[in-house]
Design a protein around this nucleic acid. Structure first.
Lengths: 132, 132
DNA sequence: CGGTATCCTGGATGATACTG
DNA sequence: CAGTATCATCCAGGATACCG
C-alpha cells in the first residue's frame, strides 16, 4: 500500500484524522478553504502543480468525509463553489496547533529550542503566491 | 510522486508537519512513545503488522527530524531504547486536538454521515461563508 | 536483539485528451 | 467552467532472508 489509508481499524483519533487529511493536497485545500470559498478553477490555480483529476478526486474524498461542501449553481457557464462544512472548520481549528508546531520546528526552527508555550499564530494568507 | 513528502517548499506549518508525521506508522509510534520509552522489539509488537524494515526506516526518519531519540546501550545482548525528544513531546501535544477531532468526527460521530455527502448532521448552521 | 539487504507490489499521483 | 476517462509512473511500504 502506498499511503496511509487504513479502512476502519483505527487505533486512535489521530490515526483516524490522518486518514481524512492524508492526501497530498488535502491540507492545502483545507487551508485555502479556511480563508474563503473557492471555485474549482480558482482552487486549481491556488495549488500550483495539482492536476484537475487529482484535485477533483481529493475534493470528492473531502466531501465524502463531510469536510467540504460542494455547491453547484445552475448557471450557463458552470459555477461550482467549495467551502468548509462546520466539521471542516472544526478540523481546520484542530490543525492549528499542528501548524504552529510545524512552523516553529520545521520551517523556522531547524535548530531552534523546543520551547514550549505558544507560538505566534498569524494567519498570513500566503498560499504559494510568489515562488513556485 | 507517491505520497506527501514535499522537500523544502512548505506552504504552511501544517504542510510541514505532515511531512514529519506522514509515514504510515509514525503517528502510532508517536502515540506509543508518548506513553513511555520502548525498545525496538517492544515497539514492533506494539504495532501489529509493521515489518522490521519499515519500522526501522520510520524510526530513522523520526530521529532525523529530531522527534525521537535513539539510545544504544552497549550490552550483550544488544539493547536500544527509543524515546521522544522535547520536540517530539511538543509534536505529540500539538496532535492532541487533531486526535480529539478524529475521535469525535471519524471514529464515533460518523456512521454513514461521512458518506453520501450528507452534511447537515452536525447542525444546521449555515456553512462557513466569507472568510478571515 | 536489532537491525540490513533485496526484490516486488499496489495504489496514490501525474500527464494528456476529451466532454456537458 | 468543471470536470471525466485513460494510461503511465513512482515510490512508500511489504515479504523475505541474512548479519553483528
Amino acid at each position: 500500500m502506498g499511503t496511509v489509508r487504513r479502512p476502519g481499524a483505527y487505533v486512535c483519533g489521530v490515526d483516524a484524522a490522518m486518514d481524512v487529511i492524508g492526501g497530498k493536497w488535502k491540507v492545502l485545500i483545507l487551508w485555502a478553504l479556511g480563508q474563503r470559498p473557492f471555485r474549482f478553477g480558482e482552487l486549481r490555480r491556488e495549488l500550483p502543480g495539482v492536476t484537475e483529476k487529482v484535485l477533483a478526486a481529493q475534493l470528492r474524498e473531502l466531501e465524502a468525509d463531510g469536510i467540504v461542501h460542494r455547491e453547484e449553481y445552475d448557471e450557463v457557464p458552470p459555477h461550482v463553489e467549495y467551502r468548509l462544512t462546520p466539521r471542516g472548520v472544526a478540523l481546520n481549528d484542530a490543525l492549528g496547533p499542528l501548524g504552529a508546531w510545524g512552523k516553529a520546528h520545521v520551517i523556522e526552527g531547524r535548530g531552534a529550542s523546543a520551547a514550549a508555550g505558544q507560538v505566534g499564530e498569524d494567519d498570513d494568507v500566503a498560499l504559494v503566491t510568489g515562488a513556485a
